[in-house]
């Protein structure tokens, strides 16, 4: 499944990186602790978080994650979105809380 398929199926906002929605998504990782993501997320997993500052881009890019989903209607900072375009790594968003979006994403990915 590609990032674009997630956007459509889960009705996600695309805050930035709309031209880079073709990466393959193999799963997801949920954490608001950056070191947890650094240590445990795996390549190909979309990252679900409430963090909106620029450092999430550094972590996502270093870990080769396909996209970030920001929860609960939080909007990424301007410089975060700018970095997202530079890194060609999209930031997506949902108004849903983490539990709900994870449940839907889990279901979607396991339907395949």
């Amino acid at each position: 499944m590609k990032t674009i398929d997630l956007v459509k199926a889960l009705d996600l906002k695309v805050y930035s990186g709309k031209d880079f929605l073709n990466a393959e998504v193999s799963g997801g990782y949920v954490s608001d602790l950056l070191s947890d993501v650094m240590g445990n997320a795996k390549e190909g997993q979309v990252w679900i978080t409430l963090q909106t500052h620029k450092n999430v881009m550094a972590v996502a890019s270093l870990k080769d994650l396909p996209a970030i989903i920001v929860v609960k209607g939080y909007k990424p900072d301007e410089d975060t979105m700018k970095k997202s375009e530079e890194e060609q790594l999209p930031i997506l968003g949902t108004d849903l809380d983490t539990f709900t979006i994870c449940g839907r994403l889990f279901e979607l990915l396991n339907k395949q």
């Binding site: 950056l34 070191s35 240590g39 963090q51 450092n55 999430v56």
Partner: peptide
Amino acid sequence: EMGFGAGMGLANMKRN
């Protein structure tokens, strides 16, 4: 508050 300082950094370094 930024999600740093969880006390996992040095352990991550040692593991990797």
